[in-house]
Simulated scan of single mutants.
Amino acid sequence: MMGLVPFLGMEDCLSGKSALFINNSNLVIELKESMSANQLNGYKRRFGKSDSVVLDELGYAPFDQIGSEILFNLLSNRTTVGLMTITTNLSFDRWEETFKDLIITATMVDRLTHRVHVLDFHGPSFRAEDIKKWLN
Results as ranks from 00 to 15, higher is better:
V109C: 07
L8E: 09
S68E: 03
E33I: 09
T80P: 00
H114Y: 15
L31P: 03
N73A: 10
I131P: 01
L119H: 11
F63D: 05
K17D: 10
D110G: 05
I29S: 12
L135F: 10
R46P: 00
T79G: 00
D56W: 00
F21R: 11
I86W: 03
I86A: 02
V109D: 03
A19G: 07
I22K: 03
V109W: 01
S125T: 06
Y60W: 10
N38W: 05
V53F: 04
S25T: 12
S91A: 14
T113P: 06
G67I: 09
F63I: 09
L40C: 05
M84A: 08
I104F: 01
P62S: 11
C13M: 12
E97K: 11
R115A: 15
I104L: 13
N73F: 05
I70G: 07
F121C: 08
G48V: 03
M1A: 13
N24M: 07
D120V: 14
T79V: 15
K132A: 13
V5L: 15
W134I: 15
L31F: 05
G3K: 09
V116N: 14
S15D: 13
F121V: 07
N23S: 06
Q39F: 04
L27G: 02
L90F: 00
D93K: 08
I86K: 04
L83C: 14
G82R: 06
S18Y: 06
M1Y: 13
K100L: 12
H122P: 02
E11P: 06
L135S: 12
F99K: 03
D130V: 13
S76P: 00
K132S: 11
R127E: 07
N41Y: 08
F92V: 01
P62L: 08
V53R: 00
S91L: 12
T98V: 05
V53K: 01
